[in-house]
Design a protein around this nucleic acid. Structure first.
Length: 455
RNA sequence: UGGGGUGUGGCCAAGUGGUUAAGGCAGCGGGUUUUGAUCCCGCCAUCCGUAGGUUCGAAUCCUACCACCCCAGCCA
């Protein structure tokens, strides 16, 4: 990492040189006067009364600026270019201004600081940069960037190239707006998993490779664009599909009792990934009591529903086919427990029964630990929040839903760097806030769900 | 009504004078499947902002027009 502050001494010397060359002058107009004299888009500006002062006088004033002898706003160093330029950025842009504040890196050494325009190209040159990339709004600054490089004895001449910024549906990407989200407390920080920052995406569970795949898919151009969220999510899914450990978790538990289970708990040995044996396997206990997702049982199933129903049967993934036997319904009409019978001849991997069922659902053992699972969704309810003057009014109140889910016991073991797919649910990763034996999972992205879409 | 940019299918994006306008995402249809996931197959712009023109031939060259974005901070 390099910082412009590392070059403040050199930048100051170069500013002095511009003054001596007659290419810069100290202007003592107020900010308001400068604005008034800058002209408009269609009318040229009016030269400052200080524009043609003796360079020696400018130099003396500039030194006074540096020495803290002038108040903020009392004077500013300006490039002497052209007040009638059709390019507003060339109407004698400010190069240095007085700020009686310490600098986060340079401390209290300076009370004058270079503007973006004066620091940019020269810093690039010092760093030996050959191609300086930035976004389209700086296109109009390129002539200024080049003007400064030409006027100064810089070690090399970087070339500025602009491209369009990346706009993503359902979020904001400008630093200022992101900063507002953080400082106004709408998110927990710059690495909040809902933030479109690298830190946020990593914490959410996006892999570096997935992020790069996304970048490859969207390309780089000079066209204004707004990328659909699906392109990001699709890239993340495509990458995670191949690298995630596959496990089971139940977000909204419904108790299931296997009434004919007449043996000790059966420890199933299940591979972490069906296509990647090198990832190894884990133990998954199957017993008389377990949990399934509430959405996988319907008393009055809609057309095409092939999960568990009264009178129906499903396969419990990696386990057995079970047949519905009965259920307990609470006073509020809510199903509390489902009773099933398992078919011993249908054990996964050694099923010789020939039975076929329409659905296979995920489950966790009755002893499954309960852990917090953060379900993240888009931060905003509209695709273009940046267009709203007060974007906090279109925040998605459900951008984070914390649920207490049940996960298979193997997930209690620390695997902080692993990506997980909770089968039929989505991709997840442990949050860094996880402490020993108390994992917290973040949902990176859901799985595609053709059934949900059909509903 | 100054200057700088950009316009190719729902979203991205190749293509810069010559067969039927790449590819990805999304969508649709079908197959495989102990994840309604993955995977596989097929379909998806007679048309490239609009209108003219040049040419044997144009999304690609010319002209005009239209639309949208950026610039009047001592912000970056």
């Amino acid at each position: 990492m390099h910082h412009a502050a590392d070059y403040f001494d050199q930048l100051f010397e170069w500013a002095l040189q511009l003054i001596r060359q007659g290419d810069a002058y100290v202007d003592e107009q107020s900010a308001e006067e400068m604005r008034a004299n800058r002209g408009t888009l269609t009318e040229p500006g009016i030269p400052s009364p200080y524009r043609d002062r003796d360079p020696k006088e400018s130099e003396a004033l500039f030194l006074k600026m540096r020495d803290g002898k002038l108040a903020e706003g009392a004077a500013v160093l300006r490039a002497k270019i052209a007040m009638d330029s059709p390019n507003m950025n060339l109407r004698d842009p400010a190069l240095y201004r007085i700020r009686h504040v310490p600098h986060p890196r340079a401390g209290t050494k300076w009370c004058i600081y270079p503007t973006y325009d004066f620091a940019h190209g020269q810093s690039d040159a010092i760093e030996g940069i050959t191609h300086s990339l930035c976004t389209l709004e700086f296109e109009d600054h390129r002539p200024l960037y080049e003007w400064l490089l030409k006027k100064l004895p810089v070690p090399n001449r970087p070339k500025q190239t602009e491209f369009s910024r990346l706009e993503l549906e359902g979020t904001v990407t400008s630093k200022r707006k992101l900063n507002a989200l953080v400082s106004e407390g709408h998110v927990d920080g710059w690495d909040d998993p809902r933030m479109p920052t690298i830190a946020g995406m990593r914490r959410r569970g996006y892999s570096p490779e997935g992020i790069r795949l996304f970048c490859e898919r969207i390309g780089v151009t000079r066209k204004p664009n707004t990328i659909e969220l699906q392109i990001l999510e699709g890239a993340i899914r495509d990458d995670l599909e191949g690298r995630a450990h596959k496990a089971m978790a139940v977000l909204d538990p419904l108790k299931v009792v296997v009434t004919n289970w007449d043996q000790p708990v059966l420890d199933l040995d299940v591979a972490w990934h069906p296509k990647r044996p090198e990832l190894g396997s884990r133990t998954l206990p199957f017993g008389p009591e377990l949990w399934i997702d509430r959405s996988d049982f319907e008393v009055n199933p809609p057309e095409g529903f092939f999960r568990l129903t009264p009178g129906g049967a499903v396969r419990l993934k990696y386990g057995f086919i079970v047949d519905f036997e009965g259920m307990d319904v609470g006073p509020d009409g809510r199903v509390e427990t489902v009773y099933v019978r398992y078919d011993p001849a249908t054990r996964s991997g050694q099923d010789q029964s020939g039975r076929k069922v329409k659905g296979t659902i995920h489950w966790v053992p009755g002893t499954a630990p309960r852990v917090p699972i953060n379900l993240y969704d888009r931060l905003f309810t509209v695709p273009d929040p940046g267009q709203y003057e007060d974007f906090s009014s279109v925040l998605n109140p459900a951008s984070l839903v914390v649920c207490q889910g049940l996960v298979e016991p193997a997930l209690l073991n620390a695997m902080p760097e692993a990506y997980f797919q909770f089968e039929r649910v989505g991709f997840f990763k442990q949050d860094p806030a996880t402490v020993d034996g108390q994992p917290i999972f973040n949902r990176a992205v859901t799985l595609k769900d053709a059934w949900a879409k059909k509903q």
